[in-house]
Structure formats: structure tokens, C-alpha cells
Amino acid sequence: MDGGILLMIKRFLQHLSSIVWLMVDASQEMADNMIRGRLPFRVNTFFEQTDRAGVGSVPLVALVSFFLGLTMSLLTGYQLRPYGTERLVPGLVAIGFSRELGPLITGIMVAARIGAAFTAELGTMTVSEEVEAIEAMGIGPLRFLVAPRVLAVFLLMPCLVVISNVTADLGAALICKWQLGIPVRYFGDLVHSSIESRDIVAGTIKSFLFGLIVGTVSCYKGLAVEGGAAGVGDSTTSSVVIAITSVIIFDTLCNIVLVAIYP
């Protein structure tokens, strides 16, 4: 009945399969290099990217999470206080962040900060034929350019999520101490007793997944740029939009699946 939706699904599947092929081809190039006894890519490039994607994102992630944790405990604290259940606040914030908000917020911020940079950078290289030149030399742009970037976000995302969780709890602990009269040590105990391993597992799985999504989408969009500077701009915008939407969609899917198989 709806041609528009069918078309959208078709385009989504096309992009998805292109991204999967991008990963397959990148793996093939890396494997070929390793068979010949070489590193899959330059270690230097990888560390440059981890520095950029990971270390460079720490202040932003920490700041945003700190204030979110602060706000969340402030609001829930005032709601729960009349019932004398403000002791629930530490667990609420800790579980909320480790399962849901930490990965989600970090995923969105990294998509905007790093995904955009990857797309713009690779897009400019595509437009100026640099990617093609690398390909024509037989170096393999996927392993040389894409692999270190994707791997950097993939591996650094869980670290950033940990930072997000810790700073959110820190913000919550401050509010609990000053507004709700819960001492920091007691805050720790409450978090410890309420959080369970499944919360941490769920958060970790999501972090890796979101890292993979942001890395692959932004690199794919960068290599697919057509049509000069305007093309780079368009691609960067749509890369951020697609990455953020995918992160939210996969977050929901993850929740559904995790609740079903690991309640």
C-alpha cells in the first residue's frame, strides 16, 4: 500500500549490504596483508585515531554525563522524597546509565563529534582522488584508511561509556550528599547492591555495537561522497543523521532482545 515505505526499506537494505561488504572487503585486505607477514594497518594511524576519537572525546562525554547524572538525581530525588524512598536514587541513576543512557548518550555524542570528522575527512580525500590514488597503488584504502578508524571507535566506545557512567554517578552522588542527605559511602553501597551483572553486560554489548555503527556508517558515507565540496557537506550531515538514528534504533532492538533472552 505504501510505496514510500517500501522504497525506504529497500534503500536501507541497500546501504546495509554496502556497509557489510565494506567490512568484508576491509577484512579481506587486512587478512591479505597479514598473510604476507605485515601488520594489517599502521599502528601509528590507529593510535592517532584512538587519541582523536577516544581521548579527545573524554571532556565532552564527561561533562554531559556529569550534568545529566546531576539533573536525573535531582529530579527523581524530589519526586521520591515525599514517600521516603530517596534511597532508590543511586541505583536508579547507576542502572539507568550503565544499561541505557551511558551507551546512548555517548553513541550520539561520538557520532556527532567523530563520525562527522571521519566522513568529512574521507569525503574530502575521495573528492580529491586521494582515495583512488591509494587504491590504484595497490595499498588498499579500506585497510589503510577505514580499518584503523572503525577499530578505534569500536574499541574506544566502551571506555568512553565507562567514563560516562562514572561521571554520571559522580554527579548523582553530589546531589545525594547535599540535597538528599545520602553520604557518598552509603551512595556507593546502594549502587553496589542494586546494580547487577546483566546491566553491565547489556551496557557493554551496546557500547561495542554503537561504536561499530558510528565507525562503519561514517567511513562508508565518506567513501561514497560524490560531487565536490557540496557533496562532502551533504554526506557529513546525512552521516551524522544516519548514525544517530541507527544508534537509537539499535538501542531499542537491543533492549527488546536483551529483555527477552537475559531478563
Partner: peptide, 20 residues
């Protein structure tokens, strides 16, 4: 892909717009 990359190592290409 791997064979193609090995073939390309035997070819040098000078780009119209340099592509450095």
C-alpha cells in the same frame, strides 16, 4: 581484491590533478 592489489603494484599512475 588481493590479486588486483598485487597487479596494481606493477602499475604507476600519474594523475591529471596529482592526487597527492
Amino acid at each position: 581484491r588481493p590479486h588486483l592489489n598485487r597487479m596494481r603494484q606493477k602499475i604507476g599512475m600519474v594523475y591529471q590533478y596529482s592526487a597527492l
